[in-house]
Structures are given as structure tokens and as C-alpha cells.
């Protein structure tokens, strides 16, 4: 299993420290929710985990190995928007992951291989509740359906880590509740560690097994003015240079939630259709 370890990670842009002293071990199969005010670096944290940004100092280890420095198939992602390809049908959006994997040259499968990938994608679409929408383009889907599609697309490559960047932030409350059920089921039925950025605290506590809060000390120049502090310009700068956000709260959610033990190694990555058809997901 793959624990994710942050070993004294710093992220700086020039003089500006975004994150500092991040020491963190994320246990395999946990569902970590990152919360914090906007601009506190939680998205930067996720981007580092994605491989899109490199830490300025420190190391990120996954399963004991240094993280690859570019996004790759072992880490799936769902963003708040633009997660699916607008020029592909719903079905093709899910299939494309398999096509990237199996068809190096053309990125397109034909014949028997294509039929297999298509069957697999249809199965997955049914599991996320998009049956009957296979031939539509994403633009004609609602926001909630697009995120369901993005989830199906991401888990089709069976990543070990799934990163969610405010995935449900733009959805209505009712639709959000439905998709919470889906993401819980996906987490339960696949061998996944999920890291989710959100600014909805209740969402963080409802879904997460662990909630981590990021906060930045209030000592940026404009904030100093606001709080009426009277520091000289030089010393204010000195403080700014050394104050990124860091972890201020980190707790396991109670009552303890754990992912269902996976039935067996070979079926573990399969979404169970049974629970798609009405049965209550555990947890």
C-alpha cells in the first residue's frame, strides 16, 4: 500500500512563502480533506501532490519512493471545472484513458480491443449513474453529471491516489449530497487514497477520515495594517519572507470511518453494480 509522506516541505515563489514546514504522513486508504481560507495554499499543496509543482524544499514520498515530477497515471484528478474533454462523447471521455494506455501511437483503439474498452466504460458509466447519456457531449450535461463523468474517467485508469480539487464546489446542495454518496462508494470499493481540497467544512467532516486545516499567520503587510500593528517596513518584510501557511489543525474524524476491507485482490478495483442499483452505500 502507498502511504504519502511529506517531509518538511516548503513552497516558495521568490520571496513569497506559500507553504512551510509541512510534515505529514497520509495513511493508505484514508480520505483526507484539506480545508482552509482561500489563498492558504491548499491548492498549491494538491498541485505538488499532482506533480504539477515541485516543492522548493523537502521531499514528497509515495510508497517510499520520491514523487514523479509530472502528473501521471498513478494519481487521478478531478477539478472543479474543465475536467472532461468537451470534444468527446461521454463514452469516449471514459474510454480515452484506456486508449492512452493501450494505443501508444494513435491513442485510439480498434476492433476487439475497442469493444472491450467500450464495454468497460459502459459498465463504469452505469455505476456512476450516467447510463443512457453515453452519446452526449459534456456541454449538454448538468454540472453534477459532468463531475460524475470526471470521476468515472479518473477511476477508469485505476489510480492509487485520487486528488479532488473542490470537485463539488459548483454544485447545488441536493446534487452535492448525491455525489457525496457516489464518492464514498468509489472510495469504499476501490483501493484508493483520496485527498480532497474543499472550503466546505461540513463536507470535509462528512466525507473525510481526517481533516487537515491550513492557515497562514496574519502578518502580511496589508493585514498588519488592518490589525493596527505597527511594525517597521523592514521587519514586516522579514516576517513576510518567513511566513507561509502551515498545518494548524489535523485531526481524525470521529466516529472513526474506515474504508470497507476489499474483498480480494483481483476484484478490488471493480465498482460493484449492486450498490449502484439502490443499495445504501456503507458509512
Amino acid at each position: 500500500m502507498t502511504a504519502i509522506v511529506f517531509d518538511n516541505v516548503w513552497k516558495e515563489y521568490g520571496d513569497h512563502v506559500v507553504l512551510e514546514r509541512i510534515d505529514l504522513t497520509i495513511a493508505p486508504r484514508s480520505f483526507v480533506a484539506l480545508v482552509g481560507p482561500s489563498g492558504c495554499g491548499k491548492t498549491t499543496f494538491l498541485r505538488m501532490l499532482l506533480g504539477e509543482e515541485k516543492p522548493t524544499r523537502g521531499k514528497i514520498l509515495v510508497g517510499g519512493n520520491p514523487l514523479k515530477t509530472e502528473p501521471d497515471a498513478d494519481r487521478g484528478v478531478v477539478f472543479q471545472r474543465y475536467s472532461v474533454f468537451p470534444h468527446l462523447t461521454v463514452l469516449a471521455n471514459v474510454m480515452i484513458g484506456r486508449e492512452f494506455e493501450r494505443a501508444c501511437l494513435l491513442g485510439k483503439l480498434f476492433g476487439e480491443a475497442r469493444r472491450a474498452a467500450e464495454a468497460e466504460a459502459r459498465h463504469l458509466l452505469e455505476a456512476v449513474g450516467l447510463k443512457g447519456h453515453e452519446d452526449k457531449y459534456p456541454a449538454s450535461l448538468s454540472g453534477g453529471m459532468q463531475q460524475r463523468l470526471a470521476l468515472a474517467q479518473a477511476i477508469n485508469r485505476k489510480p492509487r491516489i485520487l486528488l479532488l480539487d473542490e470537485p463539488f464546489g459548483a454544485l447545488d446542495p441536493g446534487i452535492r449530497a448525491d455525489i457525496h454518496v457516489l464518492i464514498r462508494r468509489i472510495w469504499n470499493e476501490n483501493s484508493l487514497t483520496i485527498v480532497m481540497v474543499t472550503h466546505d467544512l461540513s463536507e470535509a467532516f462528512r466525507l473525510g477520515t481526517r481533516v487537515i486545516a491550513f492557515e497562514r499567520p496574519r502578518n502580511r503587510p496589508e493585514e498588519l495594517e488592518r490589525y493596527g500593528a505597527t511594525l517597521g517596513e523592514v521587519s514586516a518584510k522579514a516576517i513576510v519572507a518567513a511566513s507561509g501557511a502551515s498545518i494548524t489543525q489535523d485531526f481524525d474524524v470521529w466516529p472513526r470511518k474506515v474504508a470497507e476491507p476489499l474483498p480480494s485482490a483481483d476484484t478490488q478495483l471493480d465498482l460493484k453494480l449492486a450498490s449502484a442499483n439502490g443499495a445504501k452505500p456503507p458509512g
Binding site: G76, V77, F79, Y82, I96, G97, F100, G107, R157
Partner: peptide
Amino acid sequence: PREQLIKAQTLGASTWQIGLR
């Protein structure tokens, strides 16, 4: 959107495949 290119990479696409598909 940069999200699309990142997403394609997390689906395992190479530069060539991203260009093509």
C-alpha cells in the same frame, strides 16, 4: 484550460497522444 492537459497526463497520455487526441 490547463486542467485538460493535466487531466490527460493523469490518464497516462504522452505528449504525442495529448497532441493527437
